[in-house]
Amino acid sequence: MDKLKIYSQSEINNLIIYRDGETKLGEKVEIYRHSEGDSSSTVAISFESLMKSKAKFVLLGIPEDIGIRANAGIAGASTIWRPALMAFLNIQSNRFLHGEEILVLGHFEIEEPEDSSIGGLRNKVVDIDDLVFPVIEKIVSAGKIPIVIGGGHNNAFPIIKGTSLAKKQAIDVLNIDAHADLRKQEGRHSGNGFTYALAENYLNNYFMYGLHQNYNNEEILNQNETNPKLKAVFFDEILKCANDKDFFFGIGSTAGLEIDLDCIQNVLSSAETPSGFAVNDIRKLILTSKREFSYLHISEGATRLLDGRVSKLTSKLIAYLVSDFIKAQV
């Protein structure tokens, strides 16, 4: 059965590499603790228990690549959550980032569908949507900021939905991505999360930063020109040193931040690219942001892809991006 697995302290401890004279983030982070009368089920969390936490950020994973396969992509995004969590928990706890700001909640356990056809995979993505959004809604309603590590970019939809329901309004989203993910409503997959979020009025203004001209179809380009809610800066224009500073000023105060790792050059993902942002471009963008985002979602990264490609660096990259985000928000 699909469920949210909530971590115990011992499960966190097993991921920490201890060293004399050092303290790691994992030794300082909170775990979710049930209140008196709260269900002990791993399926549900309570608003009241989240409210009692002193942490500002709630970290959780969605280790699946069903949505990517439903979009004819290469499987592998299911491999990133545990290595990324381990890399993050073994960051030093020090004056720059202590660890008490963070509650490590757990991850979603998602079973493979019996029907592995494209249609079966897309039906399964709907089940994932319904599993994820109520958890995000509770986290945001409790005044916390979810940090979600995927998984495919299909999970943008339930994260946006949960945040929107908690905020009781459609939200803006900044998506740093090579692809707009505005494909047709043809069944849920990693390429149309924002399409569904717009259609169901959970997404207000959609800001796309770093799109690649070569990898967005003409229909999507037409949408960007005709829909006033869609605002895009192409990576090709950034290479020409186009002034894009005004682009970020219109982003609303309840915006979410999406980072698809396929926008960064030579990072292992289903759509790995040799041309894209440098890692430090993205780190600088996060660290210099002067706004508080409602959530962070990092998607599409992998440590191992089905075609045999492997990278041990993706997990450490995610640890950098998550720690940068927290430092910029506190």
Rank of each mutant, 00 (worst) to 15 (best):
L50D: 02
Q329M: 06
S190P: 08
P158E: 09
N222M: 06
Q265R: 14
L25D: 03
S35Y: 12
I176D: 04
S270N: 14
A44W: 15
L285H: 11
G37R: 12
F207W: 15
V135Y: 07
A302Y: 02
R82V: 08
P158V: 08
P134K: 14
S8F: 02
I259N: 09
F249P: 00
A197P: 11
E11Q: 11
K54R: 12
D115N: 09
G61Y: 00
H34C: 13
R95K: 15
D244H: 14
G250W: 11
G193L: 10
A84I: 06
R304W: 11
K56A: 00
Q185C: 07
E218H: 11
I171P: 00
S253Y: 11
D2F: 02
D20R: 14
I264D: 05
T163L: 02
T254G: 10
Q92V: 09
A44V: 15
I16T: 03
I139M: 05
E219L: 12
N155R: 03
Y206E: 07
I62Y: 06
S190C: 05
I128K: 02
I264E: 02
S10D: 13
E258K: 08
K54D: 12
H153P: 05
S40Y: 15
F108L: 06
T254H: 14
N175V: 00
P146Q: 10
E111A: 12
L257A: 05
N201D: 13
S35G: 14
L15R: 10
L97N: 04
F133Y: 15
I139E: 04
P274I: 03
T226W: 04
A77L: 05
G152H: 10
T195S: 13
E258G: 09
Q223N: 08
S8M: 04
K3A: 03
P158W: 12
I110F: 01
D236G: 01
Y206A: 07
S41N: 07
S275L: 15
L230G: 01
P134H: 13
D115W: 09
L261Q: 09
E272D: 00
V233Q: 07
D2Y: 03
L165K: 15
A75E: 10
N14E: 14
N216Y: 00
A70T: 06
T288Q: 11
P83M: 10
E200W: 11
I251T: 11
C263Y: 12
A302N: 08
S41Q: 08
G308K: 04
E112V: 04
K124D: 04
L60C: 07
L239F: 02
F47E: 15
K167M: 11
L211D: 01
F247Y: 00
E219A: 11
E112T: 10
A84K: 10
L230M: 02
S289T: 10
M208V: 12
G26T: 00
D65F: 01
G301D: 05
I128M: 05
I159R: 04
D172Q: 01
A232W: 06
D172S: 03
L317P: 04
